[in-house]
Design a protein around this nucleic acid. Structure first.
Length: 576
DNA sequence: TTGGGAGTTGTTCAA
DNA sequence: GTTGAACAACTCCCA
């Protein structure tokens, strides 16, 4: 290739952290031959533990390292990690490296659309065109939208009809191999300390989290990267699993109570980061399904891929409103609460319901939870027990899940809270009945909640019912070693069903709220603790004063009280 | 237009 | 252990 103007091409990796079936990479190689420069941009927008938890950052860094190794092995080049605002850093690189084109994989999430528009503009200003290729989903979302005349289906049955109409998504592209790409032109020189994949400790805001890195890595069984992802696709995430596992897979029949090896494939984190191409998964499933009788969507493994497409399509069509109740064309308007102390108790595994708390510990430690566990904790937080806004729960999942996909997360929270897609609000998951089916002795609970390890099977899901003597013998006194339950499930779920009935009726006759009425009750640092089953005591936490100082909310035990009491006693100057 | 069938995965209890 | 009814009755989609 001559050194003509704009001869080089940037390949901008964001998701799609793989070499196989990478259409952006293929397009770049086709255009520029050896003058292809693979880059990843560490965008400060997402580099904060409140947005992306330490487990997911580690998974990302592992995926980038694996990609870097793959690029060096098969394409004779390195992944260049840039730091800063994507529009600015990419425009600078394009200019300095004489690139007339930047190829990247299409991303339909709201932030990505906004970011990519800015990048397109900035690159255009330095004479660099951009080209986006599909690849994160089986089909190009715009093609699907066109095929359904701009009206995305709201049920799986209709989505399947649409999928049939658009046809096979095509075979995955092989990985490019045996190439020797050039490095960007001088004065650029690859400096591992500047352009290499960083350690977590080197990232701003993650220094603290990186201190517990060894322990946290040991607890999380998922390592990022294309190599791991393809191996997981080959083994389907379990010893001895093969085509028969694929053909017999039925999602509702898989167990949510396996503490270390998931009963499902757990390919989701690898699909989220694009370490594995959805078309590669599709091909693997198609091959197995061709060999005999098989389960069918929506419960089959192929069905799981279709759910992903289905929700991506809805998210693409609706944009930002897909992640909110207010202004949503599909979410029921329900007067949820936003009680920060209760949401925190749920997030920090202090609800007093062992199955719920164990799930939340698994989420924090592993960044993953079985789908039915997600159902249980989401139902519990919203319509089942705590009556908290589904957006609050979605934000926690978005922070802690390795596989946090905006479209899927929004859709599932709407589903479980009976805000959209699912309306049978009288079907409530029991927080101490559901797990018994697959785990009557509570091994899952014991694994994640050491305090309950000595509790007899009979009381493992409802320890507050154990006689005092049994609790003492089990070295787990409820109220001391493990919390009382925040609510009486029978009372709470019954009251919530009544509230949903009213909210549904109001939405039908048009008297429902047309805005989000949930006011923040309790301060984010307040604590909710049950002092007896279903009796919650709120303790005010530290407040930041207008002058920047802090004050402790509770000066004596008497300051703690009911929610109403908390507010009547809160000093005026306290910022809530 | 309207009515009926279908809808990934609830729980409890009785037979 | 499995199956079916009761609980109370939702929305979407298509014929």
């Amino acid at each position: 290739m001559s050194a003509s103007v704009g001869a080089g091409t940037l390949v901008w990796f964001r998701k799609g952290l793989r070499l196989h079936d990478n259409r952006a990479l293929s397009a770049a190689l086709q255009r520029s031959g050896k003058l292809v420069y693979p880059v990843f941009v560490l965008d400060p927008w997402f580099l904060h533990p409140s947005k992306v938890g330490p487990n997911r950052i580690r998974f990302l860094l592992e995926s980038l390292s694996d990609l870097d190794r793959g690029l060096e092995r098969d394409l004779g080049t390195r992944l260049i990690v840039l730091r800063g605002n994507p529009a600015e850093t990419l425009a600078e690189a394009a200019k300095d490296w004489n690139c007339g084109m930047c190829c990247y994989e299409k991303d339909t999430e709201p932030y990505a659309k906004e970011r990519d528009a800015k990048v397109d503009k900035a690159l255009g200003e330095v004479g660099c065109s951009t080209e986006s290729s599909p690849g994160h989903t089986l089909w190009d979302m715009d093609d699907l939208l066109l095929a359904c005349s701009g009206k995305a289906p709201q049920t799986m049955t209709s989505f399947l009809a649409l999928a049939k109409k658009v046809g096979d998504p095509g075979v995955p592209l092989p990985s490019p191999k045996g190439l020797s790409l050039a490095a960007p032109p001088p004065p650029f020189s690859f400096d591992a300390s500047k352009h290499g994949v960083p350690e977590m400790a080197d990232l701003p805001h993650y220094a603290e989290a990186s201190k517990g890195e060894a322990d946290s890595k040991a607890k999380c069984p998922f390592r990022g990267g294309e190599t791991e992802g393809l191996e997981r696709l080959r083994t389907l995430g379990g010893v001895g699993r093969g085509d028969a596992y694929i053909r017999g897979f039925s999602k509702p029949d898989t167990s949510p109570t396996c503490p270390t090896q998931p009963s499902t494939t757990a390919l989701s984190p690898y699909l989220k980061f694009g370490c594995v191409s959805p078309r590669a998964v599709y091909q693997r499933l198609t091959e197995a399904e061709g060999k005999g009788a098989q389960t069918q969507p929506p419960v089959s493994l192929m069905g799981q891929l279709y759910w992903r497409e289905h929700f991506y399509l809805l998210g693409h069509q609706m944009g930002g409103s897909f992640g909110r109740m207010h202004g949503s064309p599909i979410s029921k308007q329900i007067p949820w609460e936003r009680n920060a102390a209760l949401v925190r108790a749920w997030k920090e595994a202090r609800t007093g319901f062992p199955w719920i708390d164990a799930c939340m510990v698994q989420l924090r430690e592993q960044g993953w939870m079985h789908h039915l566990g997600r159902h249980a904790v989401a139902c519990f937080l919203t319509r089942g027990d705590l009556w908290q806004h589904w957006e609050e729960g979605a934000a926690v999942f978005d922070e802690l899940l390795l596989d946090a996909d905006w479209s899927l997360n929004s859709a599932n929270w709407m589903w479980l809270s009976c805000s959209a897609f699912f309306a049978q609000y009288f079907r409530v998951y029991g927080p101490h009945s559901f797990a018994k089916k697959t785990d009557p002795s509570g091994a899952y609970v014991r694994h994640f909640l050491p305090a309950l390890r000595g509790m007899p099977d009979k009381y493992i899901y409802e320890p507050w019912k154990a006689p005092a003597e049994v609790q003492r013998k089990a070295r787990c006194v409820v109220g001391v070693d493990y919390p009382f339950p925040l609510v009486d499930h029978a009372d709470a779920s019954k009251a919530n069903i009544d509230k949903l009935k009213l909210a549904y009726a109001a939405s039908k006759d048009g008297t429902g709220p047309d805005h989000d009425v949930a006011a923040k009750v309790t301060h984010e640092n307040d604590t909710a603790v049950a002092t007896a089953p279903g009796v919650v005591q709120y303790t005010p936490g530290v407040r930041v004063m207008p002058n920047g100082g802090t004050t402790s909310g509770a000066s004596s035990p008497g300051d703690a009280g009911t929610l109403a009491g908390l507010f009547s006693k809160a000093p005026k100057q306290v910022k809530l």
